[in-house]
């Protein structure tokens, strides 16, 4: 039994790979360097890879292009990238005939949104696309593509090995099956960790399946202020202005908007303004709703103090606190 305990501990240690949290989307360019000759065109792809259990929406890619180069189309959009999947956008870059050979850099700006159960985010990212213009090339060159195994290769190899192992095992030769399964364990851990699958698993498990446990209906129901909250709100005697920052892509904003409307209906001293962050970005940035290229909504700001609360989790007590009547 000591051996068993030791073995379990070893597996646990291997499984726990404490790595940093990945962003929702990571971006890459294929090929990593685009080669083309003056007057010619070359293709490249912007690849967005989801590393989280959230769906990314409205992924927009636009470019800052040095003189002498042009990119078509000028922008690209992916409506939705499901969790742990990839989205690809194909572009073509063209050099003018008189562009001198050399190294150029195209900068791609990326904007996308995603929502958790209580908050919605808009993130900005960027990536650079190195372009090498060389007179030696006579036509469009796609690239330096690194050799990779097709996705079915390793599973097929694994199944073949497993088949051989099981075949021998049924004939009473049991030792090879252990060798095959050991390959599965070592290979699976090494390749899985390389593909960041432990983080994928952690990401999946970190997101509560709300509909599974009966939470979703509560969170998406219209807000209902408690009697205690209503009584507390009536104590407000001076005017308070609230600014509610929202966005059209935000799934949880209507909940916050409805609660603020309810509060204002209970006590007319509370007034509110709705600000669409996609329209008035300056005001949102000033309030801290947009910072470090990240937009977080819904956000409710008390205008006189500048205090802001985000999201809809436990919104009632936090809103009361913002209004100065909470516990």
């Amino acid at each position: 039994m000591a051996k068993l305990t030791l073995a379990i501990l070893i597996i646990a240690v291997i499984s726990v790979t404490v790595l940093s949290q990945t962003p929702v989307l990571t971006f890459s360019v294929e090929p990593t360097t685009v080669y083309l000759a003056p007057g010619r065109a070359a293709q490249f792809q912007v690849i967005a890879t989801s590393g989280a259990a959230y769906t990314a929406d409205d992924v927009e890619v636009s470019f800052t292009i040095p003189p002498g180069l042009s990119v078509t189309p000028q922008t690209g959009t992916i409506a939705k990238i499901a969790p742990f999947t990839k989205g690809k956008l194909a572009f073509s870059v063209t050099a003018t005939a008189d562009l001198p050979p050399g190294k150029y850099t195209i900068t791609a700006a990326v904007l996308y949104t995603y929502c958790t159960a209580t908050n919605c985010f808009q993130l900005e990212d960027s990536l650079t696309i190195p372009v090498r213009v060389t007179a030696e090339l006579t036509g469009p060159v796609a690239t330096t593509k690194s050799a990779t195994l097709p996705p079915w290769a390793l599973p097929t190899l694994g199944l073949v090995l497993l088949g051989v192992g099981i075949g021998l095992w049924t004939r009473g030769i049991k030792a090879p099956i252990y060798f095959v399964l050991l390959l599965f364990v070592i290979g699976g851990f090494v390749y899985g960790i390389k593909l960041r699958q432990p983080e994928q698993a952690q990401g999946i498990a970190s997101v509560l399946c709300t509909s599974c446990v009966g939470i979703e209906a509560v969170q998406h129901a219209p807000p209902h202020l408690s009697d205690a909250a209503r009584a507390a709100l009536k104590q407000i005697t001076s005017n308070i202005d609230l600014v509610v920052f929202y966005a059209p892509w935000c799934h949880t904003c209507p909940y916050a908007e409805a609660m603020v409307k309810d509060v204002a209906a209970i006590n007319p001293h509370v007034k509110y303004t709705f600000v669409d962050v996609s329209v008035d970005r300056a005001r949102a940035a000033q309030a801290g709703v947009i910072r470090n290229n990240r937009t977080i909504v819904p956000a409710i700001m008390r205008a006189d103090t500048g205090a802001v609360i985000f999201g809809i989790r436990d919104l009632e007590p936090r809103l009361l606190q913002l209004l100065g009547v909470g516990k």
């Binding site: 996705p151 694994g158 599965f184 364990v185 699976g188 851990f189 899985g192």
Partner: peptide, 27 residues
């Protein structure tokens, strides 16, 4: 739960298989 998600996302489950096989061999 993880296996279902991996099916949904179309992920080849290397890490999952390695862990389950390790558990299977052990006990």
């Amino acid at each position: 739960g993880l296996a279902q998600n991996l099916v949904i996302y179309g992920t080849v489950p290397y890490f999952w298989v390695a862990t389950i096989v390790a558990y299977g061999i052990l006990a």
